[in-house]
């Protein structure tokens, strides 16, 4: 019997396709999400809008809260760890969450690296702003990708930006020769050499990395390039990411969810959009129905009626670059 395999981790992500994953901060909200037809909940102490407002360091949630939510619903429960925080991830795996979101919504823990997710039995979802981030996360073992968008803003523009960037990159990749694709892999791999380069510079040495020296989790740059190249060839062949790809970061209305499905998302994460709105149950239900009926504008219209006020939202240009969560971890 085999557990924790790639097939099982990617398979879990496939089971939530075409569905809506909702952020919840307590048992009551988790039950509302389940009642509304969520395919999973993301258990956390504060939704992104409140994390943004609170400032300070945002960390993994209290395991007791996550366990309470796991006990209260029959649908899968996900939880977030900080980018690169291997120990938070191990804690979440130990309490048995169904999927870990290595998330930019929390404060970054490792300035150089993301978690090497292939070492875990639990599946991971990771945010990505573009194809490069997505391919790096998939090579590291992410079973699922989501756009980063800009969490806690109720503003869809960044999620659209990230999905469009990814779709266009995939289209361009399909027109490339294998040699050109290999060049892309080499470029994408540079990110893993930053630590080694920084250290060499600090020693007064040229900032170059030898292809055969280990730079991340025992892998040499050459091995990483090779790994990324394989993922890119998969993307080229399939014309899409080889894992489930959701939209996240700014979904606030049924039409937002439908828009992201139209752009090719396999499903939708809704963070602050539901429980920061006037009428969470009705809005949650409407977002589920709009995700299913994204190709039927008349249904999206019907479910969008009389939902009360959506979350207030923030204009992206009003957030300083330093406050943007999407730049955490590339």
């Amino acid at each position: 019997m085999k557990k924790g395999t790639d097939l099982l981790k990617k398979g879990f992500a496939k089971m939530v396709k075409h569905g809506v994953v909702m952020d919840v901060t307590n048992v009551e909200q988790a039950q509302i999400a389940e009642e509304a037809g969520a395919v999973a909940v993301m258990a956390l102490e504060r939704v992104p809008a409140d994390i943004r407002a609170a400032g300070g360091v945002a960390r993994m949630s209290d395991p007791a809260l996550i366990e309470e939510i796991m006990d209260a619903v029959s649908i899968p429960v996900m939880a977030k760890c900080r980018i690169g925080h291997i120990k938070e991830a191990e804690v979440l795996e130990a309490i048995g969450v169904d999927m870990i979101d290595e998330s930019e919504v929390l404060t970054q823990a490792d300035p150089f690296f993301h978690i090497y997710k292939k070492k875990f039995k639990v599946p991971f979802v990771c945010g990505a702003r573009n194809l490069g981030e997505a391919v790096r996360r998939i090579w590291e073992g992410a079973a699922m990708i989501r756009t980063k968008g800009e969490a806690g803003t109720g503003n869809i523009v960044e999620a659209v930006r990230h999905m469009r960037l990814m779709n266009e990159a995939i289209a361009q990749l399909q027109r490339m020769s294998e040699e050109e694709v290999y060049g892309v892999a080499k470029f994408y791999a540079n990110r893993y050499a930053e630590l080694a380069k920084t250290v060499r510079e600090g020693m007064g040495l040229p900032a170059t990395v030898l292809e055969n020296e280990p730079i991340y989790e025992g892998f040499t740059l050459a091995e990483i390039i090779d790994g990324l190249y394989k993922v890119l060839l998969d993307v080229k062949k399939l014309g899409r990411l080889p894992v489930v790809n959701f939209a996240a970061g700014g979904v606030a209305t049924p039409a937002d969810a439908a828009l992201m499905m139209q752009l090719g998302s396999d499903g939708v994460f809704v963070g602050s959009g539901i429980f920061k709105s006037e009428n969470p149950l009705e809005r949650a239900r409407a977002i589920v129905e709009a995700t299913y009926n994204y190709d039927k504008p008349e249904v999206v219209a019907e479910v969008s009626k009389n939902l009360g006020e959506a979350m207030r939202g923030i204009d992206i240009t009003q957030i300083s670059e330093a406050e943007k969560m999407q730049y955490r971890g590339d």
Binding site: K2, F12, S74, V122
Partner: peptide, 14 residues
């Protein structure tokens, strides 16, 4: 019986 074997970490192939 739903989730009869447990949660995702108990998922298996055989």
């Amino acid at each position: 019986k739903r989730n009869a074997y447990g949660r995702q970490v108990d998922s298996f192939e055989k």
